[in-house]
Design a protein around this nucleic acid. Sequence first.
RNA 1: GGCGCGUUCGUCUAGUCCGGUUUAGGACGCCGCCCUCUCAAGGCGGAGAUCACGGGUUCAAAUCCCGUACGCGCUACCA
Length: 501
Amino acid sequence: MNNKTIRVRFAPSPTGYLHIGGARTALFNYLFARGRGGSFILRIEDTDEVRSTEESIRAIIESMKWLGLEWDEGPSFAKSGKLKVESEGKTPSTFHLPLSTPDYGPYFQMARLDIYKKFAANLVENGKAYYCGCTPESLRKMREEQAARKLPPKYDGRCRDKKHDENDPGKIGCVVRFKMPADGNVEFDDAIRGRLSFENRLLDDFVILKTSGVPTYNFACAVDDYLMKISHVIRGDDHLSNTPRQMHLYRALGIEPPIFAHLSMILGSDGSRLSKRHGHTSVLEYRDEGYLPEAIVNYLALLGWATQESKQIFAAGELEKEFNLENCSKSPAVFDNQKLLWMNMEYLKKLRPDEILSRAKKHIDNAGLKITDEIYAAKIIGVEKDKIKLLADVPKILDIFFIEDITYDEEAVAKIFAEPEAKKMLAEAAKELESAAEFSKENLEKIIKDFCLGQGVKNAKVFHPLRVAVSGRMQGPGIFELLELLGKKRTLERIARFLKP
RNA sequence: GGCGCGUUCGUCUAGUCCGGUUUAGGACGCCGCCCUCUCAAGGCGGAGAUCACGGGUUCAAAUCCCGUACGCGCUACCA
């Protein structure tokens, strides 16, 4: 096991965006490969002919790239940046990758239909699979009868011994079913859960090739994992019950199965499967909210995995080095947005102000804010850094410095200027500011504090009115930093405008 | 229904394999205090788990064994 080349894959079905759970599975595979000099493969399992969409493929790839989960191989792209996919299904014959970099793309199962057909035919030839012409209605009826007799629903194998000669037109409209052994057990060692055992008699003759000639999940998956020389199948817990079926396929094909490792699920705050009503579930939504990919990665790594010291923040490269299957948790994990937010803040703290600015570019644009001076903007970010929890917060702290026509928080104005003296005090303070020779925070502090002392009022009586008059709101940088950042001219203009009846 | 998997602070988890070193450790969140012109950040401190429940084995069990409950998954020509 240890001298085997490590090859893992992430195999999403493109029936929706990449959700948090999928991203975690992808990440664990990625970390496992990277930490051991192995290969990480992306395989799009687009065999669901009705639910697969091109949009989903795009979203998955975009999400993977955003998270930095680069795959190592795949079919080559044409120089045009288009992926040639000889497709018989919904996957387009040429597919534009949403982002440029690698010139090789993921594998698409719909481009590999001939392969599965060959494997299925081989199984039929060797008497390990058979054609079945049962109609959906007859199957439904069969299950109803079984249910009525309180039997577990299971295909009864009625087509097992029907003869289908190569040229028999009856084959058309048939599916191919796998012949499941009637008794005995399948056993395998799961790298996370230990030894698992299943009774064969409970498994039925499942479909491996649909009428359309497209393989079903279990079949395509097993064939591809074999052909792609996957050493470790690291996937969600929801596939645990599929594993015995795949083990049988391997046995029938005379192939040594990979090592399986089943990850626990990610749940929502109420303990049910993570879904829309728990908040965002799409990786791209987190990006759009202003989360850093490195924060998401770190947080996700800790959902179902931990080091012995329970380390929280990992420096670049550490996750790859420290990740292992042994310390993966068997029990499901509840997704905690608050901890993610904290993690995001931790990563934001590590960035320089100019880095934060450039990474927040999209969010600034979305807010409709025009940054005319980047050095100035970075300076503001430097002062306000501790308050940024999300990149989307950046425009919210920058706007008062880049928009002259600021909006006033009604509540703040009402509260601070409830007393009539407040405006008078502000006007007096403005006079002091006007005569300030040097508009630096140190100098301003001296001037204003002296003024307060002279007036015999508490600092707050002057500080707060100044803040609201100049910024329109209660929160922000320290008042002197705020004034210095604004500069003398704008400070005085804003106060004057505020005071004007 | 059947089969499979799981169950340690509100949440993520360490410890479980090799029973005693555990008054069950860390992190997020929460509460309090400090800092303070605001909002944060930061510093310090605190509450919070009879280790799902019930039996058993043992001088000793979160840790080993059995059972029960609850949750989740699979039981498709979905993946």
